[in-house]
């Protein structure tokens, strides 16, 4: 036993004698562990970021072998005077403004109702969260074809059964009218992604000690007063997190819109990501499209940093 231990210890003591060697060895091990990830990370994250910035100063095209020319800030100047850039940026912001409040408030209400259930809670958890695990195209196909179709879609069809099929409510062109297309996308998105916020809120609710409610009940506080004075204030941290994650997620809107309306009708729903996707892959203007992605990236970055700083400050004061 003792002998074995001696033997096992030998290399360690030897190394600590030559401190320099030990350090080098540690560096080498550390970088060895990092290497596989860092190679992938450098190739598929860092390098594309550099390429994107580089392309944004050129007139690179997706087709043709002709070398690209350096343009300086011309792409940027051009995009800031491009009404399509501004309108698609606005659609992304507008979608965020429309989708964030229902996704936060409904998730909170659903979670508060579900948290009060003791038996069979999992059924409700399942119902509200299930859509979130579906691929976007499944969600889009269901809503596009069978919910929003004028006349026989479930929404118009149900309205038709209530108000009569000749009623104008029975043929609302949900996705094909500039008035309703964005709202329709928002409704679908709320249905699809509410479950994520719901689960965050449910976890937050379960950390609130039951004693608080019992004490409040003894003092005669009803359900509403308990929600107003206990639940909502104690969920402040969760709400800030949900809000931040939701705003960042909504700013990345693309998939549902691309599938359901392709940005139409008449470009009225085209978000900023689709704008640079179109510019790059349909018009082959990689240089210009890269400039748009850079500007969009800076907006996201500003939002993330703002959140980071705010949450740090909160933690310090707390």
């Amino acid at each position: 036993m003792e002998v074995q231990q001696e033997v096992a210890r030998a290399p360690a003591t030897q190394l600590s004698k030559t401190r320099g060697g030990n350090r080098w060895r540690r560096d080498l091990t550390g970088w060895g562990f990092m290497l596989p990830f860092m190679v992938v990370y450098a190739l598929f994250l860092i390098w594309p970021v550099i390429l994107m910035i580089k392309y944004s100063f050129t007139n690179k095209s997706l087709v043709g072998t002709g070398g690209s020319q350096f343009l300086g800030f011309e792409n940027y100047a051009r995009l800031f005077s491009d009404p399509d850039f501004w309108s698609s940026l606005w659609h992304t912001v507008w979608f965020t403004i429309l989708s964030t409040p229902p996704l936060v408030i409904l998730a909170l209400i659903f979670a508060m109702l579900t948290n009060r259930v003791i038996r069979g809670q999992w059924i409700f958890r399942f119902s509200f969260f299930a859509p979130f695990v579906l691929p976007v195209s499944v969600v889009a196909l269901i809503w596009w074809y069978m919910m929003y179709s004028p006349g026989f879609g479930l929404i118009d069809g149900t309205l038709g059964r209530i108000f009569g099929s000749s009623s104008s409510l029975a043929s609302i062109p949900w996705l094909t009218s500039t008035k309703t297309a964005m709202i329709s996308i928002v409704i679908t998105t709320v249905w699809w992604t509410l479950g994520f916020n719901f689960v965050l809120y449910l976890a937050g609710l379960q950390e609130i000690p039951r004693e608080l409610y019992d004490a409040a009940a003894v003092d005669g506080a009803g359900a509403w007063a308990q929600a107003r004075w206990i639940t909502i204030p104690l969920l402040k941290r969760t709400t800030l997190l949900v809000l931040a994650l939701q705003i960042l997620a909504s700013l990345k809107i693309f998939d549902q819109i691309y599938i359901m309306t392709s940005g139409g009708p008449d470009f009225s729903t085209r978000p900023i990501i689709e704008y640079f996707y179109d510019q790059g892959f349909t018009s082959y203007r990689i240089g210009f499209a890269s400039a748009v992605s850079v500007v969009y990236f800076l907006i996201i970055l500003a939002a993330s940093i703002a959140w980071f700083v705010l949450s740090r400050r909160r933690e310090e004061t707390a």
Binding site: R23, R26, D27, L28, T29, G30, W31, M34, M38, Y41, F44, L45, I46, W47, P48, V49, L51, M52, Y55, K60, L62, L248, K252, F254, I273, F276, Y277, G280, F281, I286, A289, S290, S293, V294, Y296, F297, I300, L301, S304, I305
Partner: peptide, 28 residues
Amino acid sequence: FRGRTVLFWVILAGLMIPPQVLILPLFA
């Protein structure tokens, strides 16, 4: 190991890059 703080910050910065913005350079 030496350099680990720098590497950590480099990776942390990556958290702020939405993959969607990289589609054009990645395709290239």
